[in-house]
Nucleic acid binder design. Sequence first.
DNA 1: CGCGATTTGTGCACGACTTCACAAGCGCCT
DNA 2: AGGCGCTTGTGAAGTCGTGCACAAATCGCG
Lengths: 243, 243
Amino acid sequence: MSQQVPALPDLPEATVARLPEYLRALHHLAESGNDTVSSEALAAAAGVNSAKLRKDLSHLGSYGTRGVGYDVALLIDQIEYVLGLTHRRAVALVGVGNLGHALAGYAGFGSRGFRIAALFDADPGRVGEHINGLVVRHIDELPEIAEAESIAIGVIATPATAAQSVADRLVAAGVTSILNFAPCVLSVPDGVDVRKVDLAIELQILSFHEHRKASLIALPAAGGLTALPGGLAATGTEEAVGS
Amino acid sequence: MSQQVPALPDLPEATVARLPEYLRALHHLAESGNDTVSSEALAAAAGVNSAKLRKDLSHLGSYGTRGVGYDVALLIDQIEYVLGLTHRRAVALVGVGNLGHALAGYAGFGSRGFRIAALFDADPGRVGEHINGLVVRHIDELPEIAEAESIAIGVIATPATAAQSVADRLVAAGVTSILNFAPCVLSVPDGVDVRKVDLAIELQILSFHEHRKASLIALPAAGGLTALPGGLAATGTEEAVGS
DNA sequence: CGCGATTTGTGCACGACTTCACAAGCGCCT
DNA sequence: AGGCGCTTGTGAAGTCGTGCACAAATCGCG
């Protein structure tokens, strides 16, 4: 018939979340001159288990060669295709305060498939400011610019109080994916994806582990000993990069 | 007989990751003058399912009242205790570039249990700079300052090339939790926790969903299309969002 | 040409997390 | 006091993700 390759396999979310990590590791390997890589080596570079990596890659059709490994360049193409990175996606950044300023200047976006196509803010005092070669527009201009630049992804870096309203305006302007840095829950229509990054939450999670570690030390090996699975004590045989 | 408060229950990781979200929602409710809240209402405010919320809270001893709900103030205390937020934790921030600068000025840390106690950079040109009331120190000073300030949490906002070396120095200085913004895998000894935030990865995950949505629209019901490796056909069939 | 070394792809069992559904508990009203 | 409505806490079932272990496939070499 016509096509062999499935258009876009339904990938497990967990796999999707790891593909970018593999991609980064692969680019690194390619720059180091590697043509092929084994699942073991790539897994180590990406900080995961090799079986998991093979299963992840198998979901997207598997282009490895048994006894040899994966072709680095081919795998890069594969993953970039699946992630939709075959062209640069235009991104709108709303909120040019402290964090937004930094995001606007972050080189990592440009080098990994994205182009910040427009900056917006609601504060007239900020409109007109030049950042990294872009001029800050007023948020009222969002609809036209989103249309003109084919923007489908928006980043919210405003205070939490403004975030929902900005999200609504982004959606109205045709944005269907939002990355939210504001510490609040956004409600959006079906079909719009939201991912959230909350810096304080990350620290609070670490704080929990600090607290737990401290309390474990405070309570020596006395009575309880509880349900600590097997001998988590001193397993010298550690090799995987922990995380 | 003796202990009223369970030392520290073993919480599922997924639960730990949601507790900060509940906490934020609770603070919001408290400011709005609510004394009690039902699991349904709190779940909505935190963006989760109410059964999940109840199960999460039940893990930490459950202080709800049937027929009424949860006491907001009590629950805040409970969660803050479990997360180890009963005192402000000192944080060291390494790397005062684009992103580090923004993080140093981010008010959300201060208002949610953390105190940025020191800024470090390796670039002598940056040492001495004042940011938000703090002076940037050279990274060589890390050991003494970490000791003096009892710093157990470190944030890495350096380029990827420097991140592993910074992590090693943080660990050597007694840091046991690291929040890593550099796009690379860190390897650390057992007992040290690492969390990673990669801004480009978040966008790439959104990009995948964009790609999938676009391909679903492009393919009404038909089978596959899409050329793969050899061609990487520059599919001009991408969205046109504004329609 | 066949053999052994190597590495992928995957069936399967296990564990973690989610969701449903409901009994048990609590306060309020009569 | 007793019943009723509301809400929590949780058993149980279902879903998802992980990791092991091994057969299948490929390459290099004698």
